[in-house]
Design a protein around this nucleic acid. Structure first.
Lengths: 339, 339
DNA sequence: CTCCTAATACGTAACGTTTCGCTTTCCACA
DNA sequence: TGTGGAAAGCGAAACGTTACGTATTAGGAG
């Protein structure tokens, strides 16, 4: 039914090898080029990707394993990547593993079986065990947002400087006279959570201060989580004067909790949020935010994986790229020193 | 390097055809079964999907074309589908087309070239032109959430009863004595927008009422959009006494706008929102909501596409499945008749 | 101990490309 | 008109499966 290169060869009187060469961008005599193009049109020829894959062992497909599809930070990165990769004719297979290590392992092995040319992973499992099958199969890997220590040197990674981000935000608050700063984090076994806590602690240390234990709340990077954590902080006997919330969804939830408790920002509570300036720009004008370069992350990841896939087995190319965040100062914090 | 069935055949002394049969679940003499299994383990044999695809013309892959990845309703459906399909060994390629008809067309043709076995689409283009290449290639199609009229009979579809959903919500408000009901819709060229507006108008008609034109606000299914639309409604000279918002993101934005304007629900404004009861359950307890069966939609779509892919060219199997929504009555509306 | 019939096993030809190693053609220059 | 070298074309052998049609085998019945 569907035409093959053989048909094109027969119709044009040319050899099979010539057709193949043309299809792959090789040069062909002008009159033959026309001949081929006409035949392609007439027979509605489309190259069979299966046969091509069999010969080249390339699927022109990359796998993406992420913890949650319902997370704005993640989807915005995926959208950017998908765009870039598709432009290079790569398809993207997304596997949501629901922050579950078992599912994550299964997803990786599934993708290895599907013979993806590259793998992008926002790791749930910090041991890196789940990536072994891919490593063994020689599939290039790019980690996103979360480093996996044991894999250093074997994979590339694109992360932001989480320590610096949290340190900047916390320092800014301390310099404004706050000493009781609430911190809302994600799950405590996640890379970014650990780094952001480190940054917070660093800032305190810089000023020779120690934060109260109960101000540090581990949550789960969801809106509900942020809402609940903020409620807890509000109801503390000694309520913090400022709060720093470390992702988008939780920032949303926390703002709702504040609204509901009739606490005005910054009059009753200083607030620093995370991500998505544009959105908050419309809804909560003037919020002070840590901004991650989401588009840059997506682009950077896409570039890395394309580079690794192009260079056959260039293990030496692995690198860790750290992108900077910015502290976008708005009006949601109060300076306690100048009342 | 990687072992092939030929290697297994050589090692076991069996024929190639026998190995193939075993690999596809055929029966083999017990001792041969053991022989094969041992050899598979020893050689770490993994069947080559490329060769398999070439022979069977099946990619065990389905394509999904959606308007926006950053939309909770969509991602929750995708997550459910992805789960089910992966259990059946199908990979899912997601293409976000940013609610752009051109991108959508490109995505479909990209997926056709990749030879997906099935296509799932939440259409942006209401003409259905974009699906022609898939139709011609004989790829089964399941539409989600949005019907495309011209394709009736040629594709399957899973939608919710949008007219009924909006009618129920609006009727409920009218029966509570409201006559000025604000309506916040998505982009006016989208299927669900049209249906939900129809439902709203139906309810008005039932009571022989006519809504004021300026109460119907077309927006864009984003949080910012919902926020802006609600602000507009609030600032109307003759402010509505109730508002019905028709998706999750806009509901969130609208609630924030209400909070900001210091309007209490339901004292100053009756409110009916959309989707995600569980989330609002934590954050805005007692909100009256139209609830779509998101999991059921995902499951239903997965089942449909699996069925269509299993039955070769069973065009007669196409059907439109309409799922019901429920009106989840909370306490966010006020009965004006009993003050 | 043979014969018959299921049940398994087998050889081989596809599937539609890419690629290797040549051969042929083209064209410029003498 | 002849020659040389570059450019383009060619045939055939893979790549690793599946499936068709036939050949072989096991094991109970006679």
């Amino acid at each position: 039914m569907a035409a093959t290169m053989k048909d094109i060869a027969r119709l044009t009187g040319l050899g099979l090898a010539t057709i193949s060469k043309y299809m792959n961008g090789g040069t062909v005599r002008p009159k033959n080029k026309k001949l081929i193009e006409d035949a392609v049109k007439e027979l509605r020829f489309v190259p069979n990707e299966f046969a091509r894959s069999l010969k080249t062992s390339l699927s022109r497909t990359v796998g993406v394993v992420i913890p949650e599809l319902g997370n704005q930070f993640i989807t915005s990165i995926i959208t950017t990547m998908d765009d870039m990769l598709r432009k290079h004719d790569y398809a993207v297979i997304v596997c949501d593993c629901r922050t579950d290590a078992k599912r994550e392992r299964e997803a990786v092995s599934f993708l290895v079986h599907k013979r993806v040319d590259g793998l992008i992973n926002m790791s749930t499992d910090q041991s890196g065990e789940h990536l072994k099958p891919a490593l063994e199969a020689g599939i290039p890997i790019v980690l996103v947002d979360r480093m996996v220590k044991p894999l250093t040197g074997k994979v590339s990674a694109v992360v932001v400087d989480n320590v610096d981000a949290a340190e900047k935000a916390t320092r800014y608050l301390i310099e404004s006279g706050h000493t009781d700063i609430g911190l809302v984090l994600g799950n405590d076994c996640i890379y970014t959570t650990q780094k952001r806590r480190d940054g917070y602690l660093n800032a305190y240390a810089e000023f020779s201060l120690t934060p109260r234990e109960e101000l540090i709340r581990f949550s789960d990077y969801t809106m509900e989580g942020g809402y609940a954590a903020m409620k807890r902080l509000i109801s503390l006997p000694q309520r913090p004067t400022a709060v720093f919330v470390t992702n988008f969804e939780m920032t949303l939830g926390a703002m709702i909790a504040l609204n509901e408790a009739q606490l005005r920002v910054p009059e009753n509570m200083s607030f620093i949020g995370f991500d998505k300036l544009d959105l908050f720009g419309a809804v909560f004008p003037n919020l002070t935010l840590v901004k991650q370069p989401q588009n840059a992350i997506g682009e950077c990841v896409a570039k890395q994986i394309l580079r690794l896939m192009a260079d056959p087995h260039a293990d030496a190319l692995h690198q860790i790229i750290t992108l900077a965040t910015s502290l976008n100062v708005g009006g949601s914090t109060r300076d306690l020193r100048t009342p």
